[in-house]
């Protein structure tokens, strides 16, 4: 006796039918796949950020939840000379270090993009400052900048170029320059290696065509390399600016914000006030005050990426 196939197959349950429908729905499936990532972002990013913003509007202290006080923390900060000094320091630190990291990083990337002997070895070596934990490199710089035992001072004195030790971290101007130099040393590899990756995506045929058209080396760089590298530059420098703006370890190890707050960044001041000083609300407010600057950097990158005309070698 013939038995129809339908008769032997069990009727699908409502659950399995729903799952089947979901699996067939492009939108539902996409939403499902995004859920784990969304949960992670919510727990580890949105919640802390939201909590930080909330704390900035409270008078929370260590061990005390605090109450809503509106913008009082920000009002106090607006009258606080140390806070404004930290804003100035942060901007100076970020802008100076980022420009120099970009210039030196691009230069290094262009060199490493040439056919050098031991190319792989050099590329690996260049990454070292980035690989070494910041605290370790900061301690090394601490010795280099020591007011009594600096190897730089010693070498310059031995060479007869100076007659007394350089006060690297004691003089406000020297201290700022010193911490910026340490940050540049540490940040160059990231810029160089990322731009090197970008350089290697530029087809050789474009250079060959431009060379046949009689382009000079500068013109090759200006009209071929730079426009095609712009998207990578935008991304790299956005990250570099964000890392620099939020730097903490280097300052904390080298100067603790001294001398007389001359190297205090917003991040270090936020920690000093919020954790060491116990004023969570004010510490959070300082951290929140960093957000507009960070957003500006991100938006700059975003709009930079959208500028196709610029990327294609045109003007604004």
């Amino acid at each position: 006796m013939a038995v129809s196939s339908a008769a032997v197959q069990p009727r699908p349950s409502i659950l399995s039918r729903s799952l089947s429908l979901l699996a067939d729905s492009r939108n539902a499936l996409g939403f499902g796949f995004m859920l784990p990532a969304a949960a992670l972002l919510l727990v580890f990013l949105t919640y802390p950020l939201g909590l930080g913003i909330w704390l900035g509007f409270t008078d929370a202290r260590i061990g005390r939840p605090g109450i809503f006080i509106g913008i009082e923390n920000y009002q106090y900060l607006s009258e606080d000379a140390v806070f404004w000094l930290s804003v100035f320091n942060t901007l100076l630190y970020t802008i100076s270090a980022s420009i120099l990291k970009f210039a030196l990083g691009l230069w290094l990337a262009l060199i490493l993009n040439q056919n050098l002997p031991f190319k792989s070895f050099f590329r690996a070596i260049v990454l070292l400052p980035w690989v070494v934990p910041t605290v370790l490199s900061a301690i090394a710089f601490w010795w280099i900048y020591d007011s009594q035992f600096s190897i730089l001072s010693w070498a310059l004195i031995e060479m007869g170029l100076i007659d007394h030790r350089i006060n690297f971290l004691g003089d406000p101007v020297n201290a700022r320059a010193s911490v910026i130099a340490a940050n540049i040393w540490r940040g160059i590899p990231f810029v160089a290696i990322t731009l090197l990756a970008g350089l290697q995506t530029i087809p050789q045929s474009l250079y060959e065509a431009a060379t046949l058209d009689g382009a000079s080396r500068w013109q090759l760089f200006r009209f071929v390399t730079l426009p095609l590298l712009t998207p990578i530059i935008a991304i790299t420098m956005t990250f570099s600016v964000l890392f620099t703006f939020t730097d903490f370890q280097l300052i904390y190890v080298l100067t603790r914000g001294g001398p007389v707050n001359a190297t205090h960044l917003m991040a270090t001041l936020s920690f000093q006030r919020g954790i060491s000083g116990g004023q969570l609300g004010e510490g959070a407010a300082i951290a929140v005050a960093m957000i507009p600057f960070l957003l500006a950097a991100i938006l700059f990158s975003y709009f930079g990426l959208q500028r196709r005309k610029w990327q294609q070698g045109g003007g604004d």
Partner: peptide
Amino acid sequence: IPGTESWL
């Protein structure tokens, strides 16, 4: 001695 303002 010079540099005490940077001392930790």
